[in-house]
């Protein structure tokens, strides 16, 4: 291969560094997803059962977060919180998780809506208490309906972790960028970072598509 296109020395040099960065990428995705999955359910239930005085502001805040850029939120939170929290990574993960909470909440809401009205009525007819109806009847069905969408948002978070570059967290793309800046040679590092993303996200999205078909 023409060495001016592609330099294997650079490729081999940067690859282990990228994998180090990839660990952070994965960690952020997993923890961010966990936050979003849990908080999203909480938000969805609040928006369903809380009185208007709580529900309305929650709805506003959720919508505001969902309709404004993650990048700006990351920088904002980092500037405000860095005096109190040492780990920029922790700040990044929380912001990512909360940003996606607003999406997950909508997914849960759609999932809850998709539970047939007859199920609620049957639970009422059996005089099940409300907490039991939620726990035993509604949430299990809602979650089943929402699994593929949750999976897709997890992949989406994975691909948005590079937004962390704006607060200099050394995830994979930041590592690639730094390597390029240090060596004045970007081709291998950035290209490899992209390919690693592709290699990780494509099989996962295939898996989710299969899950979708199975649950459909």
């Amino acid at each position: 291969m023409n060495p001016s296109w592609w330099d294997w020395d650079h490729a081999f040099a940067v690859f282990p560094l990228l994998l180090e960065g990839f660990k952070i990428t994965l960690l952020a995705t997993v923890l961010g997803t966990l936050i979003a999955v849990v908080l999203g359910l909480v938000v969805a239930i609040i928006r369903r059962i809380a009185p208007g005085i709580i529900r309305t502001p929650v709805t506003w805040v959720v919508e505001f977060i969902r309709m404004t850029p993650l990048v700006v939120q990351l920088v904002f939170a980092n500037l405000v919180l860095s005096p109190y929290i040492d780990s920029t990574l922790a700040i990044g993960i929380w912001v990512l998780g909360i940003h996606y909470t607003t999406y997950m909440a909508e997914v849960y809401r759609a999932g809850i809506d998709s539970v047939a009205k007859g199920q609620w009525e049957a639970a009422t007819a059996l005089s099940l208490p409300q907490s039991r109806t939620w726990r035993a009847v509604v949430i299990p069905q809602a979650i089943r309906n929402t699994l593929p969408a949750l999976g897709n948002y997890a992949i989406s978070m994975f691909k948005e972790t590079p937004f962390f570059v704006v607060i200099y967290i050394p995830e994979m793309v930041r590592v690639a960028q730094t390597y390029g800046g240090d060596t004045f040679r970007y081709t291998e590092s950035i290209t490899l970072a992209g390919l690693i993303f592709l290699a990780a996200s494509y099989p996962t999205s295939l898996l989710i598509r299969r899950l979708e078909k199975k649950l459909a």
Partner: peptide, 12 residues
């Protein structure tokens, strides 16, 4: 283009 992340494409 779905799989390789926006930021990577931008930097590329």
């Amino acid at each position: 283009f779905r799989g390789t992340s926006l930021v990577v494409q931008l930097f590329w």
